[in-house]
């Protein structure tokens, strides 16, 4: 019985982590769907958001909700700046060029944050009312966890409505289906690309806060690996498909926590490796991801 409870607890921890991966993966997938760009800097936008919160909260004592808002705004600004400076000029140069450019942006941002804040790990404490624990059956959840679940749920629903029902949503789907034909419909594709980057960057900032709140420490490289895993989640679910990204995010999060929790402690250090192996195994069976199809690639 104890074992089962432990399994349940790890599953819930997996859901926590998975919800973070899910919303980062959605941003990843959205940008990839339109530009076929694997944006390695996506995870570092998360770090930018977290450090913004740290500075505003500790140095200026701004209330948390204001800092969250500002961190989203700043993350969006940084995301749009990278699009304008590092990706747009290379748009006709091919996918390899923008991929390399995104690696450069990632390394640049990591080092810039290290220069400003030092490479040291720092403590990151949420206000007491957010880290208070609630016990539901065998499972302990902090107020922050509950807010996170609710936020992720609302974000995903709103996002899917926007994409299904609104004019800009239809334009985004058109762009990811056929970019050139979208131009011929009169869609301003730059506006659509900017929207995708803005949504992705804003979501990355929020997920950064969720991760930092969970692990209680932050460092300048903290965004990179979760960014990679979110990319894996997007590929696992079927890149370009938003529901696939969400599904992939939850699968990876839960698998990772179960691995970390159920394996002997000697192995838990390999949890990142496990995630990547899982991705490879799934792609061997379903090369286009769980919900992806061959059609997902642009003809």
């Amino acid at each position: 019985m104890d074992g089962f409870i432990y399994f349940l607890i790890q599953s819930v921890n997996g859901l926590k982590l998975g919800s973070v991966y899910a919303i980062v993966a959605v941003g990843y997938s959205m940008v990839y769907g339109i530009l076929r760009l694997i944006n390695f800097a996506h995870g570092d936008i998360m770090t930018v958001g977290v450090y913004t919160i740290l500075v505003l909260m500790t140095a200026f004592g701004v209330p948390l909700w204001v800092t969250v808002l500002l961190s989203v705004v700043i993350a969006i600004a940084v995301g749009l700046a990278t699009e304008r400076i590092a990706y747009r000029p290379l748009r006709t140069a091919g996918e390899e060029a923008t991929l390399i450019s995104s690696l450069a942006v990632s390394i640049f941002m990591q080092n810039l944050i290290m220069m400003i804040f030092s490479p040291q790990r720092r403590a990151f404490h949420l206000p007491e009312y957010l880290s208070r624990l609630h016990t539901i059956g065998f499972i302990k959840l902090s107020t922050m966890n509950i807010i996170t679940f609710a936020a992720v749920f609302i974000i995903l629903i709103v996002l899917s409505l926007v994409i299904k029902k609104t004019r800009i949503g239809m334009a985004m789907r058109a762009c990811s289906d056929n970019l050139n034909a979208s131009k011929l419909m009169g869609i301003n594709i730059n506006a659509v690309i900017v929207t995708a980057f803005a949504i992705g960057s804003g979501l990355a900032a929020l997920s950064g806060l969720m991760l930092a709140g969970e692990y209680k420490t932050i460092d300048p490289l903290m965004g990179f690996v979760p960014g990679l895993k979110a990319f894996c989640a997007a590929v696992l679910g079927g890149i370009g498909s938003l529901s696939g990204a969400v599904l992939g995010g939850f699968i990876l999060g839960i698998a990772e926590m179960l691995f970390a929790g159920l394996m002997p402690t000697d192995f838990t250090a390999y949890r990142d490796a496990f995630v990547f192996v899982l991705l490879i195994l799934v792609l061997l069976v379903r090369p286009y991801g769980i919900l992806g199809s061959k059609e997902g690639g642009r003809s």
């Binding site: 789907r173 058109a174 289906d177 056929n178 050139n180 034909a181 011929l184 059609e295 003809s299």
Partner: peptide, 9 residues
């Protein structure tokens, strides 16, 4: 356009 270029999905 050439090749129709409809939005297949």
């Amino acid at each position: 356009p050439e090749g129709r270029q409809i939005f297949t999905k």
